[in-house]
Amino acid sequence: MKHTIIRNDEIKSGVFRMEFHFEDIPMPGQFVMIDCGGRTLLKRPFSICDYNEGKMTVMYQVRGKGTYNLSKIKVNDEIDVTGPHGHGFDIFDKFNNILVVGGGIGIPPLLFLSKKLKSKNINIVLGFRSDAFLIDEFSKYGNVLVTTEDGSYGMKGYVTDAMKEIINEADIIYGCGPKPMLNAIKDISEKYKIPCQISVEERMGCGIGACMTCACKTLAEDGYHYKKVCKDGPVFWAKEVVF
C-alpha cells in the first residue's frame, strides 16, 4: 500500500519526524513496517509516534542504509507501509498514577501512549544523551522530567536517577528505550513491586509473526521461551523479559 508523505523533517541532528497518510487506526505501542527503498530488501519496523485523523507520525534516527534512504524522501513522495502490527501497551482504567519512562529514540512511541492515557496523575521521565526533543508535546499530557547525560537540559544523569524521586507515586510503569535502560527500569519495577510494561526492539524479517527471527527471551515454566517481538510484542510485561 502506497502512502503519501506529508512531511519529513530533521528535528535535530540525525533525528527525523515523518508524517504520512495512513488509514488504519493504530493502538499505542504498535509499529508499522516501511519499505525504505534504495537497495534495501526487507521493510524496517518503526514505532508510531502519533496518529491523528488519518495521519501517522513516526520518528527515526539515521543509523543505517534504510533510515538514510528514508531521510531523503520528500513531501508528496509515496512510501510502502504495512501495519499497524504487534501488541502495544495495555491501558488500564484502574491505575490513577502512571509513570512513563523513555530514552533516546525509544521516546517517540511513548508520546502516542501518553496522549491516550486518561489517568489524572501522569509523570513522564525522558532521558537523552544530549539534545532533547518532543518535550513540549509531552508536556501537554503530563508532568515531564528531563535528564541528559551531559547536563545540557534538565537533570544531569540517567532516567533511573529521576525515577527515584517519583517512583513511590506510581501504580504502573511504561518504558521504551535502549536495552540497558529497560533492564534498569525492570529492576526498579521489581524492587518497588510496580507492574511494568516495556517495548523491546529486535531485528525483524516479516513483521507479522511468520519468520521467527525477532526473538525476545522470556521466562517460561520450564526455563525460557523465545517470543516474537513483532506479534507477541513489541510490548511485554517487564517481569517476563530476560535480558
Binding site: T40, L41, E202, M204, C214, Y224, H225, Y226
Partner: peptide, 16 residues
C-alpha cells in the same frame, strides 16, 4: 525447540 539467541537475521545486498 527454542531456537537460537538473537540476532537471528541480517540483511545483505539482495539477501538475508
Amino acid at each position: 525447540k527454542e531456537g537460537n539467541p538473537p540476532p537471528r537475521i541480517y540483511e545483505t545486498p539482495s539477501g538475508i
